[in-house]
């Protein structure tokens, strides 16, 4: 049993769980702990139920990811469902959220039985390469056993162990997918793939997909000019009063220990760089339309909803109008900071 409240992008979100099988201490969590706040007047409450997941029939699928995540409309509510493809018919998690996104229930399926684990393994082994997602491979590694004197013994999970693994999964998968929708639907901007680097009240954003070099360039700025990094993987971006603002999120990329925690300091966004690794440092001002499409492509958009796609575009347009945008190919060495200073693109 537990309850706690976190603040994400200025919204208070409560997680409450009455199950005796689950326990959790959010202050222990590396990333949640920095977002903890008082539970008074929350914007959104999630009840967490543990056990058998109910069946939700007659749902309309709005958007699906890899045939494992489904966003659906059901009985006037939103339903976010994660299905384990290696166990047909087994739903791992379902979140049912009121249409106005103020109350929801998250149903977590009980741990797989030994028989179900064995079945899942057999099915995974029979899948051709490429069919098994990274997530499923990770799940396979978590065997739930420890070795003692060379023999595998079953590790008994306490409610706290179980709560930790359930919340870690929820944070990494369910909550992340949910927030993408939530941020857009509440017209709080959108979530973007980017590293936010800040110093002396000036913030620069380095955008790119996984592998583009966000963590690499963020770390160079930390090491060379003592800049601080809020997050090396994602942020909420929005435009308020003609100013581009960002909020931090409880997920980081590979620089977890070097990232600043908390919401963001409200510093001004002074530049956006669309980055890629390169053999030499190359910088070009990005044209307006190109900048808009690049910001959009680096967002986590809500693809299925016309109004929401239009809204994200409108925010991208405002950002591209407000902040200078550059294409940057960079070499992973210390010269990059001076290169950008010499080109008068950064002033930190």
């Amino acid at each position: 049993m537990f309850d706690f409240c976190i603040s994400v992008a200025d919204k208070k979100i409560v997680f409450n769980c009455d199950s005796q099988f689950l326990d959790y201490d959010a202050s222990e969590s590396k990333e949640f702990s920095e977002h903890l706040c008082e539970c008074e007047s929350p914007d959104l409450c999630f009840n967490i139920e543990y056990g058998n997941v109910p069946q939700f029939r007659n749902k309309e699928i709005l958007f699906s990811v890899d045939n494992s995540w489904f966003l659906c409309k059901w009985d006037g509510k939103f339903l976010l469902e994660y299905v384990d493809r290696t166990l047909p018919g087994r739903t791992e998690r379902v979140g049912v959220i009121d249409e106005d996104l103020t109350n929801g229930t998250i149903y977590i399926n009980h741990e797989k039985t030994e028989k179900e684990k064995e079945l899942a393994k057999q099915l995974r082994d029979s899948m051709p390469d490429g069919m098994v997602s990274k997530r499923e491979k990770r799940a396979e590694k978590k065997t739930g056993t420890v070795k003692k004197n060379g023999n595998k013994i079953k590790k008994k999970k306490t409610p706290l162990d179980l709560g930790r693994s359930v919340m870690a999964e929820l944070k990494a998968n369910f909550f992340q997918a949910f927030l993408v929708e939530y941020v857009v639907r509440k017209r709080m901007g959108f979530i973007a793939h980017c590293a936010t680097v800040t110093k002396d009240g000036k913030t620069y954003i380095f955008m790119g997909q996984s592998g583009a070099g966000k963590s690499t360039i963020a770390e160079l700025f930390i090491d060379i000019c003592g800049a601080r990094v809020y997050n090396d993987d994602r942020a909420v971006l929005n435009v308020e009063n003609d100013k581009v603002i960002f909020y931090n999120l409880p997920w980081t990329g590979t620089l977890t220990n070097k990232c600043l925690k908390g919401q963001g300091d409200g510093s001004e966004l002074c530049g956006i760089f669309f980055i890629s690794h390169s053999k030499s440092n190359v910088l070009n001002k990005t044209g307006k339309i190109e900048a808009i499409t690049k910001i959009f492509k680096n967002s986590f958009p809500v693809f299925w909803n016309k109004k929401d796609v239009n809204y994200i575009f409108s925010v991208c347009e405002k950002i591209a109008k407000t902040v200078p945008c550059y294409d940057l190919g960079f070499v992973n060495d210390k010269n990059i900071v001076n290169f950008l200073r010499d080109n008068k693109c950064v002033d930190i």
């Binding site: 709005l62 990811v65 307006k288």
Partner: peptide, 14 residues
């Protein structure tokens, strides 16, 4: 945007 037009289809899968 300016004289150009961006088209973005709506998708139901990733």
């Amino acid at each position: 945007i300016d004289d150009e037009l961006i088209l973005m289809p709506i998708y139901k899968t990733n």
